[in-house]
Amino acid sequence: MTQLNFTLDVEKIKGEVMQSSLNDVVKSSVVLILNEYMEMERDQYMNDSSHDRNPYRHDYRNGYYERNMILNVGKVKLKVPRTRSGEFSTKVFEKYKRCDQAFLLSMLEMVVNGVSTRKVTKVVEQLCGEKISKSMVSDLTKKLDPIVKEWAERPLNTQYYRYIFVDAMYIKVREYHRVVSKAVYIALGVNAKDKREIIGFQVSDAESKTNWSEFFDTLTARGLQSPKLVISDAHQGLKVAISEKFLGTSWQRCTVHFLRNILQSMPKKNTKEARTHLKEVFKASNSKISRALKDEFIEKYGGEKKFEKVVETLENGYEDAVQFYAEPEETYRHIRTTNVLERINSEVRRREAVIRIFPNKKSAYRLIGAVLMEYDKNIDPGGRKYIYRVN
């Protein structure tokens, strides 16, 4: 490749240094360098210098036109050389095109990280010295669509997922001039290497048996096999969908949700000992101790009327809440609750709180998908595992 050598007008740069702020100096220096580089490109194309007399010239210089370029130092205005034939073309914009792309990606990253569209426009104005429209930022986020779609629809038949956590959260979406609530389904899997993956998500109109079934159908269509255990809360429609769609799979009721349901029926006064006893039932080191603690609780409090609803709830839901004891001991604390999903929901909520109300369902899918992609990428990096098994 031909190398272009050129000299800079140092005195002009000195003048800029004496009269401008640091950022302006950097911009002016970049402008000088790039303008002179393009001038040398045109000289090389013409195969002569300006004002040379050459009867065999193949083209003629034809002045300049101005063009803006966005760089990491902000927006600069360049004088682009041209020729009469129009055949000359500088390589500068092609080489620095990735700078424009990096700038746009930075804007996009701000949006994904929960910075509002209004704030993004202000940041860009400070960097570039001029405003951009909110619609430009909105249009930019649409570039996420194919990326999110590819990630959300990736095959699931390359790994076996022993455990799957599922949960729903609710968001606000504008629809037909009204603000309505939508359910966001999220599924997290623990694969055969004991690493976590967000294996699917869906924005639905409501949390129901039908919608949960459809969500599970999309997962199996991508190659998901029935796991050993599905961990969730006790939403009735979700329970039925799990039993129908994952044959041979056990259901683990989240012990945190279950305890919360039991304690809601317990009197608040003079029940500290009973509350502590109940918590120990699900923290026991094995199923034998857990069952003994449960029986002891029923025997101790079963005769008291104020504990009647508590004991009934415990007896009816106990078996579903202790399915984790059938798995290896080192997995107990990881698979008895949906706390791992609650942390993901909190991250989505933190970003979503900036928007408050999504303009439509598609934009909700786009942004939540981008957030989940980012979270998934860093959830268990390198050699880190969610569960370390004892050999």
Rank of each mutant, 00 (worst) to 15 (best):
Q44E: 10
Q44D: 01
Q44T: 07
Y45P: 05
M46Q: 09
N47E: 04
D48K: 15
S50V: 15
D52V: 11
D52P: 13
P55D: 00
Y56D: 09
H58Q: 09
H58L: 14
D59C: 06
Y60F: 13
Y60V: 02
R61L: 09
N62A: 10
G63Q: 03
Y64I: 08
E66P: 02
N68M: 12
I70V: 11
L71P: 12
N72M: 08
V73M: 15
G74H: 06
G74A: 08
K75G: 13
V76S: 13
V80S: 02
P81A: 00
R82A: 02
T83Y: 04
T83E: 07
R84W: 14
F88C: 12
V92M: 00
F93P: 04
E94Q: 11
E94M: 14
Y96E: 11
K97A: 10
K97N: 11
R98V: 08
L108R: 02
L108T: 06
E109V: 09
M110N: 02
V115K: 00
V115A: 01
V115R: 00
S116F: 05
R118H: 05
K119H: 01
K119S: 05
K122N: 08
V123N: 03
V124Y: 07
Q126V: 15
L127M: 11
E130V: 15
S133T: 11
S133D: 04
K134T: 06
S135P: 01
S135D: 08
V137D: 02
V137F: 02
V137I: 12
S138G: 01
D139A: 05
D139N: 05
L140D: 04
T141S: 09
T141I: 02
K142E: 09
K142H: 09
L144K: 03
L144N: 10
I147F: 00
V148G: 07
V148Q: 10
K149S: 11
K149D: 08
E150G: 12
W151I: 10
N157M: 13
